[in-house]
Design a protein around this nucleic acid. Structure first.
Lengths: 337, 337
DNA sequence: TTGAAAGCGCTAACAC
DNA sequence: GTGTTAGCGCTTTCAA
C-alpha cells in the first residue's frame, strides 16, 4: 500500500543510499533533491519509523508511568514534558498504573517490549523493584517527584525540595507565634510524605517546639482524606491554632471541613495549603500556599531525559532539585497572645 | 546486547520458526517448550515489538490527539480509554495540540510516520482537513466528543446527545415557569457549542418562547469566559431568571460571578450547570447539573476502536451516541408568579 | 511438529 | 555524490 524508499528509488532512478541520505540530512545533488521531492509527492511517500527503529535500534519513544492520569498536578507535568519531547521528535507513551505496584511493573514490561528509549516514572512501588530490569538493560530511567532510597546513585531524578517546602510553611507559622501546628500529610511511606514530615519537624525544632503526634495526620493525598484529617484535628482537646496541608486535594478537603464547622480563616485558624491550580485558585483566592513549579518539573524532566539520551555515559545519577514558593494570601494571621 | 530469537535458537538448537511459533501460541512439543523457556530465562530474552511490527505491519499503537491535556473532562476520557486499550496490548501515544489546528496537523503526521494502527481525535480543526491523510491511507479514525460535518459518513465517532442534553436542562427550567433563560455556550463554531444551542432553541420553541439573542453568550469553555458571560447576563435590563451553562469550567466561573454579585441560588436565580467532576462537586454540592458519562465515552471509544481494528471493513462509519443525565440539586426553583 | 529461507523498510559501510 | 549490499529481529510460507 504505502510507498517505500524502494519505490522512490525506482521512480527516480537513484540508489537507496542517496534517498536515505536525502532524508537524513546528507548532501544530495540539487537535481536529485528535486527528483526525490517530486517522487515523494507523487507516491505520497511517508517514512516508516518502524523500519528505521529496527535498524537504528532506537525508537524515539519515551515511556511515562504515572500513578494517576486524572490528577491535575500530574497532567500539568506530563503536558509540559510531552510538549518538549515531541518537539524533539520523541513520542510519549503514557501508562496510568492507578497507584498499583503490580500494574506499574506490567507497564514497565510493556514499555520494555516496545523498546522505548527511556523511562520516566512517578513511582508507586517505593522499593524500586519494578525498575531493576530497565536499569540493568541500561536504558535511561528518570524519576519524577518521588525518589527511591534503594536506587540512590543509580538513577536520575527531578524533584522539589520537600523538606524546604514544609520548612517554609511551618516557619512562617511559628514566626507568627503559632506553636500548635497541625500537619496533614499524604500516604505513609511515600517519599514526599516523609520529606514533608521531616521539614515540619525540623522547623518545629528550630522554633524550640516539641512535636506532638496528635497534630500529625495522614490524609492519603485525597480530598476525603484531607477532610477527615481536618475533622480529627478540629476535635482535639488542644486544637491546633494553625494547619499546614501538604497537597492540593487535601487542602480542598480541609477547607470544606472548616466551612462545615463554621471555622473562619484566618480569624479562628490559620491555614497554609499546597499547589494552587488554575481553577481552584479562584475558589479560595486568599489562601496562603506552597506552590510547586509544575511546568518546570516537566520541563526539567524532559530536558534531563534528552540529555541522558544523547550522552553515552550510562548509569550516571543526576538529581535536579527545584524549589517551591510561598505565596502570601490572607489565610494566615499572627497568634494573639 | 539484548538477546534475540536467534540466540534462543542457538541456545536450544531449535529453528527460528519453532521459537516464533512458541511465542505466537502455536503448538510446540513439550520438551521443546521447556527448552525454550529455560533459554528465555537464561538469556533474559525480551521480544522485540519493533521487529514484529515491521514484519506484521501493525504496531499495536493508537495515536490520541486532544486539544488539551490539562482538562479533567479530557483526561478522564483518556484514562478510561488507555486502561482498556492497554489491556488489549495496545499502547497509547498522546499528543496535546493546545487547541491549535497547526499543531494538530503536525501531530497527525507525527503519528502517521510512526505507523500507528489507529487514530482517536478530539478535533480542534473543525474542517477536518487534518484527517484527510489518515482517512486516505485507510487507517481507522475515531472522533470523540466532536463530530465534523465534512467527514459525515466517512468516519466513526463517540459523542453525547448534545441537543438532548441542552433540551433536558432548558425544559426543566421552562417547566418551572422560567421564560427568560440565559445560555452560556463554548466557543462559536465548535460542534458541541452548536448542538447545545440547537437543543436550547428547540426547547424554547417547545415551550412557546421566542429566543432572545441577548440571552445567548459565548464563554469559550473557560472559567474566565463563563465569569464574563455571567456578568454580562446579570447586567441586562431584563435579567434572565435562570441560567444554563454548558461546561464545567464555565459553570464554575458563573458561580463565582454570582457570588461576587451577591446573587443567591436559587432564590434570586436558578442555575443548571454541566459536568460534575469529583473535586468540584463538593464545592457546590447542590448544583443541578447535566452530566456526561465520561468513563463511558472513553470505554465506548476504546471498544469501538478495537472493533475497527479487528474488522476488515474499512470506511464504515459508526456513530455511538451516549446520553447525559440530569442530576437534581437545589439550584433550581419554580418562578414565582 | 519443525527448519530453511525470504523479506518487511530502512541505514550504513564500502566501493566507485 | 552515488550505488551495492548486508542485515536489524521478526514472521511466514514451504518442504521435510
Amino acid at each position: 500500500m504505502a510507498a517505500t524508499m524502494k519505490d522512490l528509488s525506482r521512480e527516480t532512478g537513484l540508489g537507496l543510499a542517496t534517498i536515505s541520505k536525502y532524508f537524513n540530512g546528507g548532501t544530495v545533488r540539487e537535481k536529485n533533491r528535486v527528483l526525490i521531492e517530486a517522487a515523494v509527492k507523487k507516491l505520497h511517500y511517508v517514512p516508516n519509523e518502524v523500519a528505521r527503529s529496527l535498524k537504528t535500534s532506537h525508537t524515539r519513544v519515551i515511556g511515562v508511568i504515572i500513578p494517576e492520569l486524572s490528577n491535575a498536578f500530574i497532567t500539568s507535568i506530563i503536558s509540559s514534558m510531552e510538549d518538549i519531547l515531541r518537539k524533539q521528535d520523541y513520542a510519549v507513551i503514557v501508562c496510568d498504573c492507578r497507584s498499583d505496584p503490580k500494574r506499574e511493573k506490567e507497564a514497565v514490561d510493556f514499555l520494555l517490549h516496545r523498546r522505548v528509549d527511556g523511562l520516566i516514572n512517578m513511582a508507586t512501588d517505593t522499593t524500586g523493584a519494578h525498575l531493576k530490569a530497565p536499569l540493568a538493560s541500561g536504558i535511561p530511567v528518570l524519576l519524577v517527584d518521588r525518589l527511591i532510597d534503594s536506587l540512590q546513585g543509580k538513577v536520575s531524578a527531578v524533584v522539589i525540595d520537600n523538606v524546604h517546602a514544609a520548612g517554609q510553611a511551618v516557619q512562617k507559622l511559628t514566626s507568627l507565634g503559632h506553636r500548635q501546628i497541625g500537619l496533614i500529610l499524604g500516604s505513609p511511606n511515600l517519599y514526599t510524605t516523609n520529606q514533608r514530615l521531616t521539614g515540619y519537624l525540623n522547623a518545629l525544632q528550630d522554633a524550640g517546639i516539641a512535636p506532638d503526634n496528635e497534630y500529625i495526620r495522614y490524609g492519603d493525598y485525597t480530598m476525603d482524606g484531607g477532610y477527615q484529617a481536618a475533622q480529627e484535628l478540629l476535635k482535639l482537646k488542644n486544637r491546633p491554632t494553625a494547619l499546614f496541608v501538604t497537597n492540593f486535594e487535601m487542602t480542598l478537603g480541609t477547607m470544606l471541613a472548616l466551612q462545615h464547622n463554621n471555622i473562619r480563616v484566618p480569624e479562628d485558624l490559620s491555614v497554609i495549603g499546597f499547589d494552587k491550580l488554575e481553577l481552584f485558585g479562584e475558589i479560595f483566592p486568599d489562601l496562603t500556599l506552597i506552590r510547586q513549579p509544575q511546568l518546570s518539573i516537566g520541563r526539567e524532566a524532559a530536558n534531563l531525559m534528552l540529555d541522558m539520551l544523547s550522552s553515552k555515559e550510562t548509569g550516571v545519577s543526576r538529581i535536579v532539585t527545584l524549589t517551591t514558593e510561598l505565596t502570601e494570601g490572607k489565610s494566615v494571621k499572627a497568634l494573639k497572645v
